[in-house]
């Protein structure tokens, strides 16, 4: 029993960056934009979140704390958004190919993260970019008196860092937004058939920009989770290492539903930490392949049983030209 509880908790913690990435990309794809730059936006979020916290610490010469953590969230959101804004400008306004623009964003974002990670590291006394102890503490798992002490349940529900709860909140909000609000329905209309949405008086360009940029911001928070929680506030080059891409695949696994994204990121989080909990007697490097292998299997499985209800928004990947209707 303990093993299962521990595995579950570790899976939640490891799956949260994937959750943010997946949610961001779901919102993006709902507007008909296939942004393959999730990896890049996560890199941008990862370094800017770290930089935001450091900025606060250096400004007031304190070891950080809650304001630094808040700044990390805000910065990562803004810089994820910046990446998505470049993407939106190129694909929506300048009508560039979505696939290539997304790939360019990944190349750019990876360079952005590693470059500024090195720059900040090079300028600090220790030689690497690391946040203070107080900031790090904010990102540690919380302990709620009494609630966290309930056997099993306390650990399963009340033992994570605040970003886990933020991620779940974003998922629930997004599910309500997409299914219950007029704006959400409009957004889905834009993704399904922009020409029809345009004819109905919906501002397609505006919806595409907003959905993509906010989606990018959410991806950015996912990246910040990697630098602040997984790497415990120290910049590690190439730290995102493909998680953005798994998030893109998880969107398919989640069939564009925020609530199923919760399940997907839990499963994939579990796969990535499995070797610590379930010894199968195989080399650890083979364990590392599992998430990627599982992604391939998911792709094949969801591709073969294609259903109309759980399909990709119809216009995804295709730019909308009003003049060429």
């Amino acid at each position: 029993m303990d093993v299962i509880v521990n595995l579950f908790c570790a899976a939640v913690l490891a799956g949260t960056p994937l959750l943010f990435g997946t949610l961001g990309e779901i919102l993006t794809e709902k507007s008909g934009n296939l942004n393959l730059g999730v990896e890049g936006m996560m890199f941008m979020g990862a370094i800017s979140g770290l930089a935001g916290a450091l900025f606060y610490e250096n400004l007031f010469s304190v070891p950080g704390g809650i304001p630094a953590a808040v700044l990390a969230v805000v910065f990562s959101f803004l810089f994820g958004m910046l990446g998505a804004l470049i993407y939106s400008f190129l694909t929506v306004t300048l009508r560039a190919n979505q696939n290539v623009t997304g790939l360019a964003l990944t190349i750019f974002g990876t360079g952005f993260g590693n470059f500024f990670g090195d720059v900040i590291g090079g300028r600090s006394a220790s030689g690497y970019a690391a946040v203070g102890a107080a900031t790090k503490a904010v990102f540690q798992n919380i302990r709620i008196p009494y609630l966290s002490d309930i056997p099993y349940l306390g650990k399963l529900l009340f033992s994570y860092n605040f970003l886990v709860y933020l991620g779940i909140a974003v998922a629930v909000t997004m599910a309500v937004f997409l299914n219950k609000t007029r704006t959400g329905l409009n957004l889905r209309a834009v993704g399904e058939d922009p020409a029809a949405a345009d004819a109905a008086g919906i501002n397609v360009t505006k919806y595409k920009y907003f959905a993509t940029c906010i989606g990018g911001g959410i991806c950015g928070i996912g990246g910040m989770y990697i630098s602040m929680v997984i790497c415990s506030g120290v910049w590690v080059n190439n730290c995102v290492s493909g998680m953005g891409w798994i998030a893109v695949a998880l969107v398919i696994f989640a069939t564009w539903s925020p609530s199923r994204a919760l399940l997907g990121s839990l499963v994939f989080g579990g796969l990535s930490i499995m070797r610590m909990y379930i010894p199968l007697g195989i080399p650890s490097q083979i364990y590392d392949i599992f998430p990627y292998l599982a992604t391939v299997i998911v792709l094949i499985a969801t591709g073969i049983r294609q259903s109309r209800e759980h399909a990709i928004p119809k216009s995804t990947g295709v730019n909308y030209f009003r003049e060429e209707r």
Binding site: G40, A104, I107, F108, G109, T110, G111, N114, F115, D118
Partner: peptide, 11 residues
């Protein structure tokens, strides 16, 4: 200047 400037510039 970090060598990752190459991919930043390429992007």
């Amino acid at each position: 200047i970090p060598a990752s400037a190459a991919s930043l510039l390429t992007g």
